[in-house]
């Protein structure tokens, strides 16, 4: 049970929202000149990091507006919520503190918002 702060409605339970996958995926400007491999990359391949992830959410049981969020997928801690119109935030301030690619975060596996 994560709490997500909708930029329009405020903090609500995650079950009110639907996830829209990775954010900032740009449709190629020249689809006709792309190779099958590159087009396949755009259609099927998305980042899947254990750590900091830029993603889209929609407040489907609320204002129905889309927005972006930055979440640490190893803790489910939401680091930042921002509107679609805003620029992709620079995240040098949120360093991925995981020791190894599949290592667990210091707070242990689980929901950060519940544990803290």
């Amino acid at each position: 049970m994560i709490l997500i702060k909708c930029p329009y409605c405020g903090e609500r339970d995650q079950s009110e929202f639907a996830n829209g996958g990775e954010a900032h995926v740009i449709r190629p400007k020249n689809p006709e000149s792309l190779s099958d491999k590159d087009w396949g990359e755009y259609v099927f391949y998305r980042n899947n990091p254990k750590g900091i992830f830029y993603e889209r959410w929609v407040h489907s049981h609320g204002c129905k507006k889309w927005f972006n969020a930055i979440r640490n997928t190893s803790t489910d801690q939401i680091l930042k919520v921002y509107k679609v119109s805003e620029k992709r935030p620079d995240l040098s301030e949120f360093k991925n503190t995981l020791k190894s690619p599949s290592g667990e975060p210091p707070v242990g596996s689980g929901n950060f918002s519940v544990k803290k």
């Binding site: 994560i2 995650q14 079950s15 639907a18 996958g21 993603e55 979440r71 997928t73 489910d76 596996s109």
Partner: peptide, 13 residues
């Protein structure tokens, strides 16, 4: 769950 996560828990809903 409806979103990517590595927490090995999942949501109650």
């Amino acid at each position: 769950d409806g979103y990517n996560s590595f927490t090995q828990r999942g949501g109650y809903d």
